[in-house]
Structure formats: C-alpha cells, structure tokens
Design a binder for these strands. Sequence first.
RNA 1: GGAGAGAUGGCCGAGUGGUCGAAGGCGCUCCCCUGCUAAGGGAGUAUAGGCUCAAAAGGCUUAUCGAGGGUUCGAAUCCCUCUCUCUCCGCCA
Length: 430
Amino acid sequence: MLDIQLLRTDLENVAKRLAARGKAFPVAEFNSLEAERKTIQTRTQELQAQRNITSKQIGNAKSKGKNVSLILAEVTGLGNELKQAETQLEGIQTRLQQLLFGIPNLPHDSVPEGRSEANNQEVRRWGTPHTFDFSVKDHVTIGEDLGLLDFETAAKLSGARFSLLQGGLARLHRALAQFMLDTHTQEHGYTEAYVPYLVNAESLHGTGQLPKFEADLFVVPHGEQGNYYLIPTAEVPLTNTVRDQIVALESLPIKLAAHTPCFRSEAGSYGKDTRGLIRQHQFDKVELVQIVHPQQSYAALEQLVGHAEKILQKLELPYRVMVLCTGDIGFSAAKTYDIEVWLPAQNAYREISSCSNCEAFQARRMQARFRNEKGKPELLHTLNGSGLAVGRTLVAILENCQNADGSVSIPEALRPYMGDLTRLAAQDKK
RNA sequence: GGAGAGAUGGCCGAGUGGUCGAAGGCGCUCCCCUGCUAAGGGAGUAUAGGCUCAAAAGGCUUAUCGAGGGUUCGAAUCCCUCUCUCUCCGCCA
C-alpha cells in the first residue's frame, strides 16, 4: 500500500512513476473521492465535537443537581445527523482504501524502465554452461528414464501440474532443501522457521496477495470462521510474523529462512511450461525474508541476492542475475532481481529465484514498525527472496549434471546429504 | 467438541454509566540533590488521523481500553456476536 500522504501531496509524481510500470493511476477518481472525504470528515468531526461538549455539560449539570431537559432537547436531532455523516464517511474511506489496496508499489529509481520481461537487464553472469558431447535430454526424459519421476501417477492422484518423485530423486529433492537451509542458517545468519502452511486472509492482505490476486491461491473453507489459504510462498507467514508489531531497534535486522511447500493455482498460465517440474500447483521452496531498518534495505537486497547465488555456486550451476524492469516487477516490490539458472535442454536461462525489496509497502499494510532512534514508531522495510526454488534446482541438476549413460552426477556439496552417493542411476529406486 | 476464567498504554495493574486517554507502579528521558556508590526529590513519557500553517513549531479537533455491532445525550464500564489466551474434561499425532 502506498502512503496516502504521498498521494495527497505529490500525486502527479506518483502517477508518473506508476505509469512506468504500465499502471494508470485513476487521478480524477482519487481527487474527487478525496474532496468528498475532506468535506464529510470535517463535518463528522464537528458533529462529534459538539456531541462531546454537550454530553459533558449534561454530566456537569446533573452532578450539580440541575435540570437538564433543556440541554437534552438541544441534542435530540444531533444523533441522527451524526450517524448519517459517520456512515457516509465510512463508505468513502472504504472506497478510498479499496482503490489504494489495488495500487502496486512504486519502482525504485535504480530500476530500468521497460514494458516487459524483454526489457530486463542482465547484471552479471556466473559459471560457463557445460558443453555435452552427446545430445542432451530434458529433465522429464532423464527422470522418467531413471524410473524416478512419474507424472502419470501424479495425474491419477491429483491431476495436471503435480508430480511424483521416488527413490534417489525424492531423496535428492529432500537433500537440496536441507542443504539450502543449512547454508543459510549456518553461513548467512538466518534463523530457521517452521511455519503454518495455511494462513488467514489478513496475512495474505499484509503481503499483498489479497485482495487482488485471490485467483492465484488455493482456498480451504473452514466452517463459519471463514477461509484458510494455502501459502503461495513462505514469504507470507515469515513476513507476517511482524504484522501489528512494534519491534525494538536492537532486534533488527530480522532474518528468517523456511523450507515449505508452496501452492499456486497458476490461473492464467494455461499452456505455459506444461511439461515437467517447472510450473506446478505444489512445489517446495526455501524462502529468505529480511525485516530491516529503512536505511539498510537496499544493502540488504544486494546481500539477499548474494545468499541465493551462493547456493548455485556451491552446486556449480551456471546462472545469471537480472534486474527486472519497471514493467515486470511484482505488485509489492520496489526493486527485484531474478536469478536465472542455465537449462541445457532449453538452451536458456530460466528463473530459479526472485529477490525483492518491498520497502514499506507491505509494512504499511501490516502496520509492522520499529522504534527508531528517537523512540518513535516507524515503518519497517521488508525483503524476500527464494533461496532457492527446490523443484527448479532439481531440474537444473538433472539437466546440467546428466551423463551420456543416462545417469546423473550428484554435485559434491550434496553428497553428505545423500549418504555419499555420487550418481543417480536407473537401479536407485530403492 | 463440552465447562469455566480472562483480554486495559512499552510492561504490570486499578477502574461497573459523566469531569477517564484512563489511578498507581515498573521501565525510559530530562532536571535537582548527594564527595563516590546506594538511596531520594521534581517534571515528562501512547498511536493513527483531520483541519489550520509556505514549512517547522504550534493551535483546534476526532478516533482508539481484544474486534465488530447495539442501548444511551454520554460507554473501558451495560447488552449481543466474534476472535484469541488460560484452566479442566473429552479426543488425538
């Protein structure tokens, strides 16, 4: 959510920066709502003040044993008028808020302008893609040939966009998550967290998935209490830990890491990445969240990307880092880096991590604050990044580490998590 | 799932219809006193808004005592609904 003060004082500039992300701000609608709000709010508060004064007079008079019927008669009409004004004000403020909740974050000045993915800029590259002296297979073929990856059975159990891993591949998947989590907690200073996978609407509202993106979520009805939602990312529970809180300055930065499944309905992505593990309704991810002092958030973003990169470096997987352009950053983000891993079978780099600084956008929705140097509450900055998407990392390993005989070499960093196994071969089902 | 108790400021805790944004304490900040330490004295100390102001300061004002609704001229206080926490019983990994 944007700061309404900013909209009141510098609407033109806000509209301009939103235009850079391809979002037209409804200036006229906002201005007329604001004008209306101003009139009605002033009127309401005047009436409230009048009521308060009169009520006090009644109290005073009564305690002195005076007759109050005269003053009482004076306030008779006030109640109705006040109630009407209050209702009207509430209506306007709801409309203003709804408008505001639908407006995305402003891009940071350092974000390159552009309309789409095509305008994202490469920041750096690490590693050299391997050249193969045989024709490479894609991860689906590799996994199925090994007898360890089974989409047909998954489709029977659930439907499209689910997968079943077995044997060494399932173990490799587990090993990856452990390895990532251990690296971040032991080398990068994150606190490991185990979090709820079902969250309430307030939490999703806090991080910005609601109210606009309900269609992307899986909803679980829960009796009369309303709905639970399956988390689309651990960013939601991790970031919302500070919702409605005022944290102490000394406790910053807060760095949290969690390994969770993520659930996305993938509405609107029909026909995209239908083959394989790239785009699933359920996938695992190790998520990094940082909650920091506003002055630190851009330094923290660089760090956060580095933490995610470190995983790929240890796994010796080639990648590049992209800075997303104004037209491609997500709703809550002010700046986003994507990390893209090399996939030989696609002969392309594909997204494996996304790291964003949301500045105060989420914190404002969540009322997540800290006591600043002057002891005053101030909004925090929140950041999140994948470190990394486990399923996609598995894909990258299968494809980058494949051998001519159909086996897959296990990166050295993972071997301690695999009982020192060096390769996955067809007989590894058990 | 059943029965009961509770939710008040950074924390503890008083407050059962009016002068209560809320006693008292703790903590924190500033000042005074004390040769040092310990102790003592005084003052201050919620948040989010609105209007005003070129801005800062200030001024005026509104809302907030778990949340929402109701009764009333007036609600922390009375009534209703919900949420959460605790205790006991049941069930369960």
